[in-house]
Structure formats: structure tokens, C-alpha cells
């Protein structure tokens, strides 16, 4: 914990920790909620999903800066600070076996899982950088950057065919959802929203409900990727484009 880097951290510790806390909810948490909701619409068929993806991609050339400003950078910020926070503590759940202490430790473990998951996941579907050279020479040869926004359902379903991915996503979703739901709870204490022990108990319940619902949503999305037939989806997508062309 020495060196110029960490001393910058230490000097602005309060601000950084508050921003970290905030970034967990907005934009990262909010993004994840929307993201999982959108993804879960795949269960209603490739068409519904494609329509939603379209809405997002309607941003056109603004998409890239928006992605970076509101998604990637906040996640990277949250992740970097998160790792620093994790390193600043020392879990002792095996010695002090209290529920809250377990939750504290899990918050850290799921944070680490989230890093691995999100970075792999984004590589897997999005490809990290949409530079032609990168996609052709690095990402795609590795079986990454599978997703095509104009063939949303089919590429997604296709990308998720490998047996390894579903369990990986399951763990990822579990970790992210727990991390988010428990994060909401700790956030309420950090910002002084639930103060009394009784209030904190009630908040635990509320956050658990949020977490379970969100997990349901995530699971729906995951199941949808498995039950969607890429060929069939491709057909739906093609028909959508045709009709769109016809509109013009």
C-alpha cells in the first residue's frame, strides 16, 4: 500500500470510495438491470429481442462514446477501485462466523468473479474493440466477438452453443446479481438510508427480493439463449430486415 499511486488513492479516499459506491448503482448496476431485462426478452422470440437491440443500436455513431462513457469506463473504474478495496481488507469469516461477515466476504469474492466474468463475457460477445484488424486477427480466431447486433438472437444463440459457456454464465450471473443486491444493501448503510438495526434487517429483505427477481431475469435470458435455435432465429431476423427494407 505504498507508492505514489496508492497515496493518491489515500489522499482522496473518501471521494473515491463514495464514487465507487455510487458507480456500483449508477451506471453499472443500472446498466446491468437494463441489460439483463433486454436479454431476457429473447425468451419472447428472436423478433422481440432484435427489436430491443435495435433500439439500443439506433444510437448509431454515438453508441461508441456512450458505451465507453457510461459502461466501460465506469466498470473499469469500479473494478480497479474494487480490487484496491479488496486488497485493503482481510476477510476473517472463518474466525468470525457472523452472517454479515459472510456477506462482506462474498461481496469481495463475487467482485473478483465479476471481473473475470465481465471481461471474458464482453470479449466473448462484444469483442472489446470494434476495430476491424483486432476483430479479424485476434478476437474472431479465438472464437470471440460472436455477437452481431443486426443478427442479435441468432449470433447470441450461436455463441452460446459451446457447453462451457452456459455454466460460466450461470456463475457470472449469480455472482453479479449477488454482488449487486448485497451492494445495494451496503450502499444503503454507506449513504445512511437504512440506519437502525431493524431498518437494516428490513432492507436486507428488500434487497434479497430485488436480487431474486433479478436472478430470475438473468436466468430467463440464459435459458433463452439455450432454447433459441440459431437457424430459426436467423430466419426471423432476415424477415425483419426484408420488411424494414420494404418500409423504405
Amino acid at each position: 500500500m505504498n507508492g505514489p499511486n496508492s497515496s493518491f488513492f489515500l489522499r482522496h479516499e473518501f471521494l473515491i470510495r463514495r464514487l465507487h459506491s455510487l458507480s456500483g448503482l449508477i451506471p453499472v448496476g443500472a446498466y446491468m438491470v437494463v441489460h439483463l431485462l433486454v436479454n431476457s426478452t429473447l425468451i419472447n422470440g428472436a423478433g422481440a429481442f432484435q427489436t430491443n437491440v435495435h433500439k439500443i443500436h439506433a444510437l448509431g455513431k454515438f453508441l461508441l462514446p456512450v458505451e465507453w462513457a457510461f459502461i466501460f469506463l465506469p466498470i473499469i473504474f469500479h473494478a480497479v477501485v474494487g480490487v484496491w478495496i479488496i486488497r485493503s481488507g482481510q476477510s476473517n469469516h472463518s474466525q468470525y462466523r457472523f452472517t454479515a461477515n459472510w456477506r462482506y466476504t462474498l461481496q469481495r469474492w463475487t467482485g473478483v468473479i465479476a471481473i473475470v466474468f465481465i471481461f471474458t463475457h464482453v470479449f466473448h460477445l462484444h469483442g472489446w474493440f470494434h476495430a476491424q484488424w483486432w476483430l479479424e486477427n485476434v478476437a474472431q480466431p479465438l472464437g470471440m466477438a460472436q455477437f452481431r447486433p443486426y443478427n442479435a438472437a441468432s449470433t447470441l444463440a450461436q455463441g452460446m452453443q459451446n457447453y462451457g459457456w452456459p455454466p460460466f454464465y450461470l456463475v457470472g450471473i449469480l455472482a453479479c446479481v449477488y454482488h449487486f443486491a448485497n451492494g445495494l444493501w451496503t450502499m444503503g448503510i454507506t449513504w445512511g438510508l437504512w440506519v437502525s438495526p431493524a431498518g437494516q434487517r428490513r432492507a436486507t429483505l428488500a434487497c434479497a427480493v430485488v436480487g431474486l427477481l433479478l436472478f430470475g431475469v438473468g436466468l430467463t435470458a440464459l435459458v433463452a439463449t439455450q432454447v433459441t435455435d440459431p437457424e430459426e432465429a436467423r430466419g426471423v431476423e432476415d424477415r425483419m430486415y426484408e420488411s424494414e427494407d420494404g418500409d423504405r
Binding site: 479516499e13 454479515a100 461477515n101
Partner: peptide, 15 residues
């Protein structure tokens, strides 16, 4: 530095 922000809500303290 070292202020309240360091707390990570492990709540062992109260226990």
C-alpha cells in the same frame, strides 16, 4: 484518509 469510508459493512464490530 482512514476515515469512515474504509468501513466495508462487515458488521463484526457490532457483533
Amino acid at each position: 484518509t482512514g476515515g469512515i469510508q474504509v468501513c466495508g459493512n462487515a458488521q463484526n464490530c457490532v457483533a
